[in-house]
């Protein structure tokens, strides 16, 4: 600290950023929670005119598509947290210890989709998965993948994994590069084979990186919107809706009900999910610290 006390001139450093942050992040965030108790459409000027209590929440509670969206969101998050992280873990170990000549090129190729817009990625895959797309002609099938109720969510998860796996991969790679190698050398002397090393030494040592990747994918999973929007628009018949796209459908979609209050209630649910996870994370990490 340069100064022992608070100086007025500190405000000049702080205020622009804090002003923008409060006006366009904190205040809208809190307003969103309040708005979920009001009924209003996109054309109203006074949003707080019609207080409806928990009607908006009752409305989504009774809507079967809300439960589908909630289930799909959790499925999507599950896919991102476990499947995507798992594949990235194995892949990073294979690339790191595989002694590849072009290891940097390999990583760059797998990483590349991360820098693309999810919209572009979704549209690339959309044509591949369509009924007259290339996947059917490779497999010799005639199947409409994106209109299959049971399959569609898994395909969205697959496309999302395709895009983001490289992100987890490079984070794991950084973890591997800073790994303590003494244990590995010791296990070499003890004659451990490669699978024993991977499962008994490397994966346990990478545990902090795994946690980091899981948290990143968890946060990213709740954000998913773009990929659902371009691939299916929540279809067929709302069966691939996630919470974010359900919010969009209720509040902004041209053919939707234009009920902003219900959209705010959905935002409340998303907010509550993230908050629960954040609190759980703090409690768990405190408990771990106490045990140590």
């Amino acid at each position: 600290m340069i100064y022992k006390t608070f100086q007025i001139k500190t405000l000049f450093y702080l205020l622009p950023a804090v002003f923008i942050f409060l006006t366009f992040n904190v205040i809208p965030g809190l307003t969103s929670l309040v708005l979920s108790f009001f009924d209003f459409t996109g054309f109203e000027t006074n949003l707080f005119r019609k207080f409806v209590g928990i009607d908006n929440f009752i409305k989504i509670y009774e809507d079967k598509y809300f439960w589908i969206a909630l289930k799909n969101t959790f499925l999507f998050v599950f896919g991102a947290v476990f499947i995507q992280t798992g594949i990235a873990l194995i892949l990073s170990i294979f690339i790191f210890f595989g002694n590849f000549k072009f290891s940097i090129l390999v990583r760059s190729i797998i990483f590349f989709p991360c820098v693309l817009a999810p919209v572009s990625v979704g549209l690339v895959w959309k044509k591949i998965l369509e009924q007259d797309g290339v996947l059917n002609s490779i497999l010799g099938l005639d199947y409409s993948y994106l209109s299959s109720v049971s399959l569609v969510m898994w395909l969205i998860i697959m496309v999302n994994t395709w895009q983001w796996i490289g992100y987890n991969l490079v984070i794991y790679y950084a973890g591997l590069q800073s790994m303590n190698i003494e244990l590995l050398e010791a296990s070499d002397i003890d004659g451990a084979n490669w699978s024993q090393k991977i499962f008994s030494i490397i994966i346990p040592l990478l545990w902090p990186t795994t946690i980091l990747n899981m948290i990143l994918n968890l946060i990213g999973g709740f954000r998913a919107f773009d990929i659902v929007y371009v691939l299916t628009r929540g279809g067929p018949a709302h069966y691939s809706e996630v919470l974010a796209s359900y919010l969009y459908y209720y509040s902004f979609s041209a053919g939707g009900p234009n009920k902003m209050g219900v959209g705010a209630a959905v935002a409340f649910v998303i907010f509550a999910c993230i908050l629960t996870i954040a609190v759980a994370r703090i409690i768990v990490s405190k408990r771990i610290r106490r045990e140590n």
Partner: peptide
């Protein structure tokens, strides 16, 4: 490097907001 009131609380709010999905702010924004 400087001192001001509520520094760490404000910082924690910022950290928490990084985890929030953009869609939560959509309607009020």
């Amino acid at each position: 490097h400087l001192r001001f009131p509520l520094k760490e609380s404000l910082y924690n709010v910022m950290i928490a907001s990084v985890a929030m999905p953009a869609q939560v702010l959509l309607i009020p924004l």
